[in-house]
Amino acid sequence: MSEEQRTCLECNEPIKGRADKKFCSDGCRNAYNNREFRDVNNLIRNTNRVLSKNRKILVEMNPTGKTKTTRDILVGKGFNFDYFTSIYETKKGGRYYFCYDQGYIFLDAQSIALVKKLEDLNNH
């Protein structure tokens, strides 16, 4: 009975070892998976970059944990309103948008209140 020769999915070199092995080395396995998941990884990396930048801007603009600013100021600093990690709805129907522990709520078309931590919202 002859055994079919298995080859590495990355480099096509012969594979030795377990019958279910798909790669000849960890390096080939990593290279293959990095290429296969590149688009997904780039999406996640880019999303995290925007969220991190948004949070950094909110921290910079809100050193005391509660302040007001304007939409134009945040946009001027590079803030992207399309990216946030969660939404908190108040009993009165207001919506706080959070980038991790830093949040904001629109007071009107231009004015924005900045807050820190979800626990702080219990006072509203």
Rank of each mutant, 00 (worst) to 15 (best):
M1P: 06
S2R: 08
S2L: 14
S2W: 12
S2I: 15
E3P: 03
E3I: 02
E4R: 11
E4G: 10
E4I: 14
Q5R: 07
R6C: 02
R6T: 01
T7Q: 10
C8Q: 11
C8T: 05
L9S: 09
L9A: 07
L9Q: 06
C11Q: 13
N12C: 08
P14Q: 11
P14C: 00
I15F: 12
K16E: 12
K16D: 09
G17Q: 06
R18N: 06
A19D: 15
A19K: 15
K21R: 09
K22G: 02
K22I: 08
F23I: 04
F23R: 00
C24L: 01
C24N: 02
D26T: 05
G27V: 10
C28V: 10
R29D: 00
N30T: 13
N33G: 06
N34K: 02
N34D: 03
N34S: 11
R35L: 15
E36H: 14
E36R: 02
F37A: 03
D39H: 04
V40R: 04
N42P: 09
L43I: 09
I44L: 08
N46M: 08
N46K: 11
N46L: 04
T47A: 12
N48R: 08
N48S: 11
R49C: 02
V50I: 13
V50M: 09
L51P: 04
N54W: 15
K56A: 13
K56S: 14
K56C: 13
L58C: 07
V59H: 00
V59F: 06
E60G: 03
M61I: 11
N62R: 11
G65K: 11
G65L: 04
K66D: 13
T67D: 13
T67H: 14
T70C: 15
T70E: 09
T70Q: 06
I73Q: 04
I73L: 09
G76V: 12
K77Q: 05
K77D: 09
G78C: 02
G78P: 01
F79I: 10
F79V: 04
N80D: 13
N80S: 10
F81T: 05
F81S: 02
D82L: 01
T85D: 01
S86W: 00
I87N: 00
I87R: 00
E89L: 05
E89P: 09
T90C: 01
T90M: 01
K92R: 12
K92Q: 05
G93K: 02
G94V: 02
R95I: 08
Y96R: 00
Y97F: 15
Y97A: 03
F98H: 00
C99M: 06
Y100I: 09
Y100G: 09
D101H: 08
Q102G: 05
Q102K: 03
Q102D: 01
G103I: 15
Y104A: 08
Y104V: 15
I105R: 01
F106N: 05
F106L: 03
D108H: 14
D108P: 07
D108K: 13
Q110N: 03
Q110C: 11
Q110A: 12
I112D: 01
A113N: 11
A113L: 02
A113M: 05
A113E: 10
L114F: 03
L114W: 04
L114D: 01
K116D: 08
K116H: 05
K116L: 01
K117L: 15
L118E: 07
L121D: 06
L121P: 05
L121Q: 04
N122F: 06
N122V: 14
N122Y: 00
N123K: 06
N123E: 02
N123C: 07
N123D: 07
